[in-house]
Amino acid sequence: MNVLRTLDWSPLLISLKTGIVATIFCFFLGLFAARKTLKLGGKARAVVDGILTLPMVLPPTVAGFFLLLIFSLRRPFGAFLYEQAGIKVVQTWLGCILAASVIAFPLMYRNARAAFEQVDVNLIYAGRTLGMSELEIFWRVIVPTAGPGIASGTILTFARALGEYGATSMLAGNIAGKTGTISQKIATAISQNGDYLTAGIWVIIVMLIAFGIVVLMNLVTGGRNRRRW
């Protein structure tokens, strides 16, 4: 039990903070993107949808590669950002958030889109004929009606952002107390020190969180479902 007393809890805090902030970003961006793509026609929608889904199907290191290509201080845009606005993404907590957001975004976007597609189009038509503005229809009719789907998307997004490893390690690095997330802690505890005890503790914590998230999601989306068989 001495291990627990001396354990550095910062990875938990960093991971949770990263997960929460990235989820908030993804929530609004995902809803926005889902709304926009649903207004597109067939082919344009297929292409845009493909681009927005890409981070989900590619290895996270590929996303890390592109993020570094953009934000590295040795690249034009990254240098510009640092010199003009003082914003540094590489090796910072901002990098953690960015990497987690990019990787988790498709989960939010796809779930929101699927939920929107299930909304009865007559509800939207009714809102229009009743004189509600398009924005009002979106926030007061479509989003609440698509509520369960959006909630499950949000929870999955949080879970994914919480556990992000590949892109984060490339962009934000693993600076203890600053960018050292749980997933990175598990990797380094073993690869550098062979410390299976510390890694194991973090593994248990991650499993508990993940399990809690999945159960929560089932309660949110399936709460009203009866037994079907």
Binding site: R128, M132, R140, T145
Partner: peptide, 21 residues
């Protein structure tokens, strides 16, 4: 004109009441 500008009353087949309100 947009549907909002037309100010028509339309009763949909399944009534289209907003389920969350």
């Amino acid at each position: 004109l947009t549907p909002q500008q037309r100010q028509v009353g339309m009763l949909f087949q399944n009534y289209a009441l907003f389920p969350t309100m």
